Simulated assay, not measured.
Amino acid sequence: MTLRRRDTLKLAGAAVAASTVGTAGCLDAVGFGDDGYDRWLAARDEGVAFAYADVAEIDDLEEDVSPDGGGTDPDDPLLAIPRGGAVLVGLAANVALAGTGLDALVSLDDDEADDAYDSTVEGLLVTGAIVLEGQFDVEEVDELLGTADGLFERRYERTDELGDYDLYRPADDGLGDGAVVVSDEVVVQVFDDDPEAVVEEALDAAAGDAERAADAFDGFGWALETAGEGQLVVGAFGEDPETEGEVAPGSEDAPDPDEAIEGVDGADGFVCSLSADAEARETVAEFAGIFSGLDDGTEADLEAVLGASATETSVEIEDGRVTATATWRDEGTE
């Protein structure tokens, strides 16, 4: 897996404020573990890629809370990788969900969605499907799906059931094919040539009836457990068959999109998370990567670049597994 800056568009446009580490909220982020977002990550032969946002926390992000007065290095992998996830989350919330009208339920930068609707979105996962977790008024969601009439929107109608979920399909012909399933705790949206198959794959993985990426790919479960909790989490393992290249997010504003993110371009897979505390004016990144055939030179490169811009950094390497923790503190005056 080569982490290239071009690949941020594969996991991406509005980048939320977390991409500049100008973040707020609480370090006790949720979403991973028992009944967490990782249960939706189905195993595919070619690999997996995802970005997850704790919407309840990202909703309160403030751009003016920036470690060290904004003096962080955007090429630091522990900032560049989450930036790719931020782009993906922003595109999912502002573009992909807009096709069904469900973007109205997701607010990444204000309280408009919270005030206007009874349904609340707590977590947003982007992978083979877009998964919204929270508390949903199914009648409200039905109305949004059935009345979407914007320029790029399509109306969806309830056509069947999939287990405990209501299945919606497009009410008329249009570009591409899609499916949405709805329950009072989860909404899953898919655009694909065979959308019902992708939906069923995600539902089976979540229910434990199909193999999950954490179990299928060597070391990926460890990476999720090590670095998978945060307000913003990005991960990948394996290759992207659509591009005949490797999967991985990077910095969308780097001058050379083909330039690999220095130091971590040889990872087989990784998980990287970002969380922040506005009161403490502190941002923390966690990284866990799986590498094959590390030599002394590569290890030295990793130690040099991971968290290079942070106030405090810790890097550990053992048996091809790399962990890093970086903390940025804004020690300036307000």
Rank of each mutant, 00 (worst) to 15 (best):
83 R>M: 12
39 R>H: 05
100 T>M: 14
67 P>M: 04
41 L>G: 07
70 G>T: 02
17 A>Q: 03
40 W>A: 06
42 A>T: 14
23 T>I: 07
39 R>T: 08
44 R>T: 15
25 G>L: 06
40 W>Y: 13
83 R>H: 14
80 A>P: 01
26 C>T: 10
98 A>D: 11
21 V>Y: 06
32 F>G: 02
56 A>H: 08
68 D>T: 10
86 A>K: 01
93 A>W: 14
107 S>C: 13
64 D>T: 08
106 V>G: 12
14 A>M: 12
33 G>Q: 10
21 V>D: 01
59 D>P: 03
97 L>D: 08
61 L>M: 09
31 G>I: 06
77 P>E: 01
73 D>Q: 09
47 G>V: 13
100 T>I: 05
18 A>R: 02
25 G>H: 04
41 L>T: 11
89 V>D: 03
83 R>Y: 03
92 A>M: 14
19 S>A: 14
45 D>Q: 15
95 V>T: 15
24 A>C: 07
59 D>T: 07
21 V>G: 05
27 L>I: 07
55 V>Y: 05
15 A>N: 06
28 D>W: 09
39 R>N: 07
16 V>G: 06
25 G>Y: 01
66 S>R: 04
16 V>W: 09
52 Y>W: 12
35 D>G: 02
106 V>T: 11
97 L>F: 12
81 I>S: 01
92 A>Q: 11
61 L>R: 02
40 W>D: 04
96 A>T: 14
29 A>S: 08
62 E>D: 13
65 V>L: 06
25 G>D: 02
57 E>M: 12
17 A>R: 01
62 E>Q: 12
79 L>Y: 01
35 D>K: 10
36 G>R: 00
14 A>E: 08
87 V>S: 15
29 A>F: 08
99 G>Q: 07
89 V>Q: 04
107 S>L: 12
52 Y>C: 02
101 G>T: 13
86 A>P: 06
107 S>V: 09
34 D>G: 05
87 V>W: 09
64 D>Q: 09
38 D>V: 08
84 G>F: 00
47 G>S: 12
70 G>I: 02
75 D>H: 13
65 V>N: 01
61 L>A: 07
78 L>W: 02
59 D>A: 12
15 A>H: 03
21 V>H: 04
56 A>Q: 10
17 A>N: 05
52 Y>Q: 06
102 L>K: 15
71 G>S: 15
48 V>Y: 13
63 E>R: 00
18 A>F: 07
101 G>K: 09
98 A>V: 14
35 D>W: 12
72 T>E: 03
72 T>V: 08
66 S>F: 09
41 L>V: 10
38 D>Y: 05
29 A>P: 03
102 L>Q: 11
88 L>N: 05
60 D>H: 10
63 E>A: 08
55 V>Q: 04
101 G>N: 12
20 T>V: 12
89 V>F: 06
61 L>I: 07
45 D>G: 15
76 D>K: 05
107 S>W: 06
32 F>S: 08
35 D>T: 14
18 A>C: 13
94 N>W: 14
42 A>L: 06
31 G>W: 02
68 D>R: 06
74 P>S: 04
20 T>R: 02
56 A>R: 13
96 A>D: 13
42 A>C: 13
93 A>H: 12
41 L>I: 11
72 T>I: 13
25 G>E: 01
15 A>R: 02
44 R>M: 15
54 D>P: 00
22 G>F: 07
19 S>H: 03
47 G>A: 11
98 A>I: 15
